[in-house]
């Protein structure tokens, strides 16, 4: 553990340095543009090295995508235009904020639906039990009778 911590620290420092380097090496028209660029490369996912965004990845494809994002920003395109451009070519996979579609709806609503069903079933079952345990007047009279007999 004593060795692992500094190593982890070094690794994370490296990951940040890739981003920092990339953004400082490029020249931007203004700070806001640099900000948008940094947001973009963190939000866009590298299709080649699948669990990394293009800021963290050193894959040639991620490099190309960073270049393309930069070029488009410089050409005056908005963040959304660049995201749409990437999605058009690489699919929804490429954006770390997937849109709401029929397939993702199951993931959003599935747990809620299951929870509602669970609660519904629980309520139904307990209600039924109450109905069953409640005695009719005849049954109550019978019970009284039995008790009396027992005491005798």
């Amino acid at each position: 553990m004593s060795r692992l911590l500094p190593m982890l620290f070094l690794l994370s420092a490296f990951a940040f340095s890739v981003v920092a380097q990339d953004a400082t090496q490029r020249s931007f028209d203004n700070e806001q543009q640099r900000e948008v660029y940094q947001q973009l490369i963190k939000e866009l996912r590298c299709p080649k090295c699948q669990n990394q965004n293009i800021a963290d990845s050193n894959a040639p494809l991620a490099e190309d995508m960073r270049d393309k994002s930069y070029e488009m920003l410089k050409a005056g395109k908005s963040k959304q235009e660049i995201i749409d451009f990437m999605v058009e070519r690489y699919g929804n996979f490429v954006h770390y904020k997937p849109p709401f579609t029929a397939a993702t709806a199951v993931l959003w609503f599935g747990p809620v639906v299951i929870l509602i069903i669970g609660i519904g079933v629980a309520v139904l079952l307990t209600r039924k039990k109450k109905e069953q345990t409640a005695l009719t007047p005849e049954e109550r009279a019978q019970l009284e009778q039995l008790r009396k007999n027992d005491n005798d």
Binding site: P47, K48, P60, L61, D64, K68, R89, Y90, G91
Partner: peptide, 12 residues
């Protein structure tokens, strides 16, 4: 430069 491939969404 991979420009054509980029248009096709080639990733490898």
């Amino acid at each position: 430069e991979g420009d054509v491939a980029f248009e096709f969404g080639v990733y490898g």
